[in-house]
Design a protein around this nucleic acid. Structure first.
Lengths: 109, 109
DNA sequence: ACTGCTATATAGTATTACAAAGTAGTTGGG
DNA sequence: CCCAACTACTTTGTAATACTATATAGCAGT
């Protein structure tokens, strides 16, 4: 499904954090995963910008490892600040979700 | 609850469309309503820019009416294109929601 | 060599929410 | 009458973020 890119703002960062939190991973793999799981139009450039943003905000630990299939990979793991941010993200998401549902179901007086 | 403004991008337009769809309304009222229903930090400037965007995209019909309490109000109603857009919005929202839930519950192999 | 896949990086653009300030009409208190 | 408070709309500028497009590079198979 085609998703308006504006609807992904803020969401994609949460998704990337979530993906990293379940085990160390790297940009290319994250992109492939998202493309195969409902976010078909997300491109590499987007994921890499997010990863570099996370790094700049000190939410991740990075380790470079050689690959047997191509260039070296930069593996990401969440640090404590990253885990906190992820928790916050899901709380906000749940909250927005709740409010949206109520809004949709409510009528004018 | 404090919501990251990035998480509202795209969402607010849908909310405003939804609010208009349940009966003709105007900017100030929409702002008040949102502030009282989970979106406390949304300010007038934001709502008015959205309304003008909707107008520019020909999704609404506008009627100016005198108020007994202050300056004249600009009332908004959705036209057919606006209704379509609203339907699309909820479809995309539901889709993203589904994918997010699956993503949160999934683990690395 | 060339193609394709793996992998990272970055410059530029469009969109959008928010901050901040301004303009105006109406009402009620002093 | 003046001023504050509330109602109501508008506009300018800024920050954040996803996307477009492109570049770089390693490795494998033909």
């Amino acid at each position: 499904m085609k998703i308006a890119t504006e609807l992904l703002k803020g969401v994609l960062e949460g998704i990337v954090l979530q993906r990293i939190s379940t085990g160390e991973t790297y940009g290319y793999e994250i992109t492939q995963y998202l493309n195969a799981h409902g976010f078909e139009d997300v491109v590499e450039g987007t994921v890499y910008t997010i990863l570099m943003r996370l790094e700049k905000q000190h939410l991740v630990a990075i380790e470079k490892k050689k690959s047997d299939r191509g260039p070296a990979r930069k593996f990401y793991r969440l640090n404590v600040a990253g885990e906190d941010r992820l928790i916050q993200f899901w709380q906000q998401w749940a909250y927005v979700n709740t409010q949206m549902t109520q809004l949709k179901e409510s009528r004018h007086d």
